[in-house]
Design a protein around this nucleic acid. Structure first.
Lengths: 274, 274
DNA sequence: GGCGGCGATACCGCACGGGTATCGGCCGTG
DNA sequence: CACGGCCGATACCCGTGCGGTATCGCCGCC
């Protein structure tokens, strides 16, 4: 299955073999065996190109989940046996900073609380971290993050604002509509990486984290619609205007649905009581 | 991992090996290898008994999920390649009969609908069927069934009633409290099998499906608290009394969170519009 | 038409998974 | 207290299957 995922992602047996540190022929045979075992054609091969069949793309999605589950099993087992227990909390760097601080503080004061390791990561990563067992619990932000396959509790909902370079013509407005923001051809919205690590097509600059984002805004090369709590982290060299019709952002605490850990349960309970 | 799950469930290398149709020594070694690879002690072995360690029980839970995911990947891939598409809907035999009928009828009338295979199963099974890819969508009943790890939409909520043998002294009451029902020592509540197939301890008779249940009630050996919609399926040789303080039962339609199937989406949409 | 890129095939060797035989410790029993 | 039996671990052997190298066959392009 690892082999198939590699080939399906590369769409090239040679490169996939290289990624798996093996030779190409055994890889070809392994895929053929898989196809024979399943009785299904997974790949259309022409001498020039490899393409996924319908069934192949189903297997790609399912196999990723299965491999993640296996990885999670190993990792969680190892962690359960480690002598120093603790919880790993994942969240996007820079988001919900104040809420996170309050949560950590309140949880530390709980009786029987464990050390919490905070894992800061890029957008879209936390779900994968939970699925592969690298993290135990995460703070996510709907609708940016998806909670599919996770259990979650809502913590806080807030409106969004647009961040503009200081002195921009629109900076004096009391509020802006999402349509007006998008209509700014000179200040495009940035493009965040998708789940596969690729950036969607479009005019805006490619961006990986908030530092890059605010750098670009300060340079007058972009603007961004972000939750209003981020304003606390901005110095006053930006202009901030509410965007009432942008979708509200809900901060949620999420965890794998079968989690049996007392620490995660305590953390969730503490968070909902804040 | 399959090996470990077998040993962890049997807590006996010999029987586990038998279940896996292999000899005991290679199984012992395989488990040792797994322990060495993870660097973790999974089982306490005394010469007389085998017991799970803390880490072992974590791996048991995680490994089951991982194996289910692998099984689901294979099964869904095969199904995706089969020339006759279709959806498998799982639900407990006898529950929500009318709602199911309406749903199937309404969905069949939708444009682009596919054949629906209804899979009737016992209590607690549907979650496993969804996780292993044997079913695509299920009708569940909270709080009896858990929707952890699934996406779900509420369809219908109803009160519960107690079903008594005809002519029972309590049969004339306008309503009963849950405490009164439980206090009936001569008419114990039945014990349903748990997720592991074992029945909880207690006085009541062990029961696997509604047929058994109602047979026992008719014989005057048990009573049962069930959703009120079940009364439509009962002939009038039972007495039915509302139990207002029993938890309300919500019928939900549930599906695996990463499902990308149009048929499942249509089915869910149809169900929520009923 | 020839060359190059790429997946498939042919063939080989070794490592690992599984089998049988046997050991060793623990408990129950007469 | 000694013996037997139960059960997991160890020792040793064998065959299969996975991965490697060499090569082929097909297609597209210069």
């Amino acid at each position: 299955m690892r082999y198939f995922v590699a080939v399906a992602e590369e769409l090239h047996f040679g490169r996939a073999a290289q990624r798996l540190s093996m030779a190409q022929p055994p890889l070809s045979r392994a895929i053929q065996q898989l196809e024979r075992r399943l009785g299904v054609v997974l790949l259309h091969r022409t001498a020039r190109a490899v393409a996924l069949t319908e069934a192949g793309s189903v297997l790609l999605r399912e196999a990723r989940l299965a491999l993640d589950a296996v990885e999670a099993a190993e990792r969680r087992t190892r962690r359960a046996a480690a002598d120093q227990p603790g919880v790993v909390l994942a969240t996007k760097a820079g988001a919900s900073r104040e809420l996170l601080a309050k949560l950590l503080h309140a949880y530390a004061a709980e009786p029987g609380s464990m050390p919490v390791e905070v894992m800061l990561c890029g957008p879209g990563e936390p779900e994968g971290l939970l699925r592969t067992g690298r993290a135990d619990v995460a703070l996510l932000h709907r609708p940016y993050d998806t909670t599919a396959g996770l259990d979650a509790e809502d913590l806080h909902t807030e409106q969004q604002v647009v961040v503009l370079p200081k002195g921009h013509p629109l900076a004096d407005r009391a509020y802006l509509s999402l349509a007006e923001v998008k209509a700014q051809a000179d200040l495009p919205l940035p493009r965040w990486p998708g789940r596969d690590g690729g950036h969607p097509d479009g005019p805006g600059p490619r961006v990986r984290d908030h530092t890059q984002l605010f750098q670009l805004i300060a340079l007058g090369l972009a603007c961004a619609v972000v939750p209003e709590s981020l304003r606390d982290q901005l110095r006053d060299d930006y202009a901030i205007v509410p965007v009432p019709d942008a979708p509200a952002v809900t901060t949620v605490i999420a965890w794998p649905p079968h989690s049996r850990s007392k620490a995660v349960a305590d953390l969730v309970r503490t968070a909902t009581r804040l």
